[in-house]
Amino acid sequence: MIFHQSMVKIIAGILAIIGLCVGVNVTFFQTRGFAETTAVITDLTEEGSGDDTTYRPTVEYEVDGETYNVKLDNSVKADSVGNTITVLYDPSNPELAYVKNGMGIYLLIVCPLILAFVLISIFKGRGERQENKERQELSGYTGYAPHVVGGERELYFLTDLGTPKAGHRIEDENRRVLYEAKMTNFGVAVDYKFDFIDHEHGKTVPHLVGQVLESTWGTLLADVHDTFEFDGVDIWKHLKQNGISVESSVTAGEGALVGMEYRILRDGEEIAHAVQTSQFPHEEDTDAHKVEGKIPIPGFYRIWTTEVYLDLLFVTLMAFARSGAGDDKGGTYGAILGTLDKIKNNEGNI
């Protein structure tokens, strides 16, 4: 199952409702009419093993002159024998007892706050997506620019690391910014707002970019999935809808020990070839920073392309830069298979 930002909110809301119900039951029903007394932990029952080991206490307490020894469902520390705890017991059946704690009250306080946070973020997110759609219409955006072939250019895609805003840009060899995404609003529970700016053609389009999420399966048959939502749609689905497919592999070459390589196609026709590069992608920077120049940095790519319009290519590279994925499904298996195929075709050389 693939979890997206909206699904996480729904799951959190469901868990908050369940927690609220538990809190109500524990606080108002489970121990209603119970009496309070002090009990001594006399024994521990060890359950599980390793890091999953828990210790269930047996406690002793007195009611109306009669002593009761009761094993409780709560877990305590391994060295708790001899400690005293407060328990609640049923006067009509003193052997029915629970540890007195503030869990019920805690759930009654925290769960409504979580539920309110989830509901506000869901409705706010819907409103922001509608607002963003209206802003796109005002900017004249009707979709990505058509595939137009020009002369081949060597460009650089760079990601601003070390900042929560994590902006992205494409530069030419003279450091002139051709295309970039500038964050205009940083949110915790809602999508980030970006202005995507095409400096070559003087066009700005607003987009919403969600937080990166990962779902992992612990088997050999299912891959990880690193993704985020782009204007409310899974980024990899969004790229597929716009004709993008990517052939991924691992490469070793100038300026990088080992890095990712992408052959990017639009409707089956190659529009760009990108290679992961160092944090100093320009040749003079590589000379000035010899150590860093040999380390591939996530989010930095050297690009060769004939595309005149860079908008869809930019979003494709941003998908890999933000998610850290290895293939166009958000996983890693595609890159592994692509590398094996590349080795086979090159007779063992990457």
Rank of each mutant, 00 (worst) to 15 (best):
R266L: 01
R266Y: 00
D267R: 02
G268C: 05
E270I: 13
E270C: 11
E270T: 15
E270R: 14
I271W: 02
I271M: 06
A272R: 01
A272W: 04
H273A: 10
H273E: 14
H273M: 10
A274E: 10
V275W: 02
Q276S: 10
Q276D: 06
Q276P: 04
T277A: 04
T277S: 06
Q279E: 10
F280D: 07
F280H: 09
H282F: 15
H282Q: 13
H282L: 15
H282W: 15
H282A: 05
E283G: 15
E284P: 13
E284C: 12
D285E: 15
D285W: 14
T286E: 12
T286C: 03
D287C: 12
D287M: 15
A288I: 10
A288R: 14
H289K: 09
H289V: 12
H289L: 02
K290Y: 10
V291P: 06
E292D: 12
E292W: 13
E292L: 13
E292C: 08
E292I: 08
G293M: 06
G293C: 08
K294I: 07
K294F: 09
K294H: 13
I295V: 14
I295H: 01
I295E: 04
P296V: 03
P296E: 05
P296C: 11
I297S: 05
I297G: 00
I297Y: 12
I297L: 13
P298Y: 06
P298I: 09
F300V: 05
F300A: 00
F300T: 02
F300L: 09
Y301Q: 00
Y301L: 06
R302I: 10
R302E: 06
R302Q: 12
I303A: 00
W304F: 12
W304R: 14
T305I: 05
T305W: 01
T306G: 04
T306K: 10
E307N: 02
E307T: 00
Y309V: 07
Y309K: 02
L310N: 02
L310T: 02
D311N: 11
D311F: 05
L312S: 01
L312N: 02
L313A: 02
F314L: 05
F314C: 03
V315E: 00
T316A: 05
M318S: 09
A319P: 06
F320Q: 00
F320D: 03
R322F: 01
R322T: 00
R322V: 04
S323V: 00
G324C: 05
G324W: 12
G324T: 08
G324A: 11
G324M: 05
A325T: 07
A325E: 03
A325D: 03
G326H: 09
D327E: 07
D327T: 13
D328Q: 07
D328K: 04
D328W: 01
K329Q: 11
G330W: 02
G330R: 04
G331C: 09
T332E: 01
T332P: 06
T332K: 08
